Amino acid sequence: MMSDTETLRDEVRAWLAEHWDADTRRAKSGGSLPDWMDQVVAAGWAVPGWPAEWWGRGLDKQSVSMIVNEFRKVGAPGAGQDRTNITANSVMQFGNDELKRKIIPEFLSGRASQCLLYSEPGAGSDLAAVRTRADFQGDHYIVTGQKVWTSGAQNADYGLLIARTDWDVPKHEGLSFFIIEMRQPGIEIRPINQITGDSHFNEVFLDGAVVPVENRVGDEGEGWKVMQTALAVERLVMGDGAGERRQGSAKNNVISLIDIARETGKINDPVARQEIAQAIAYRKLNALNMLRAKQEMAQGSASPIMSLGKLAMSRILHEDARVMTKLLGAASMLDGPTHLLAADINYRTANAYMTSIGGGTDQIQRNIIGERVLGLPRETEADRNEPFRESRAVTG
Score class of each variant (00 low, 15 high):
332 S>V: 07
104 I>N: 02
95 G>C: 10
270 P>S: 11
295 Q>M: 12
267 I>A: 02
261 A>Y: 01
190 R>C: 06
376 L>Q: 13
36 W>K: 05
30 G>F: 07
168 D>Q: 14
76 A>V: 05
87 T>I: 12
183 R>T: 09
133 R>H: 07
248 G>H: 01
233 V>Q: 02
13 R>S: 15
200 H>Q: 07
372 R>I: 01
190 R>K: 15
235 R>G: 01
299 Q>T: 08
18 E>A: 15
175 L>C: 03
314 S>Y: 12
113 S>A: 04
381 E>M: 14
256 S>I: 04
200 H>I: 05
129 A>V: 01
214 E>L: 00
320 D>R: 06
378 R>S: 14
389 R>E: 11
290 M>C: 10
2 M>W: 12
344 D>W: 03
219 D>I: 02
300 G>F: 07
147 K>V: 10
392 R>V: 10
210 V>E: 10
173 E>T: 00
296 E>R: 15
61 K>M: 05
62 Q>F: 12
278 Q>P: 02
13 R>Y: 03
243 G>C: 01
300 G>L: 06
131 R>M: 13
113 S>W: 00
228 Q>W: 09
330 A>C: 04
85 N>E: 13
135 D>T: 14
2 M>Y: 12
152 G>I: 03
217 V>C: 10
282 Y>S: 07
58 G>I: 07
283 R>G: 10
381 E>N: 14
321 A>W: 09
266 K>A: 10
59 L>Q: 10
240 D>E: 15
20 W>I: 09
396 G>V: 08
77 P>I: 01
163 A>L: 04
209 A>M: 07
358 G>E: 06
257 L>N: 02
47 V>F: 02
288 L>S: 13
338 T>N: 15
62 Q>D: 15
195 I>S: 13
95 G>D: 07
230 A>V: 01
126 D>G: 02
84 T>Q: 03
308 L>Q: 13
132 T>V: 11
251 K>T: 08
43 A>C: 09
37 M>S: 00
384 R>V: 06
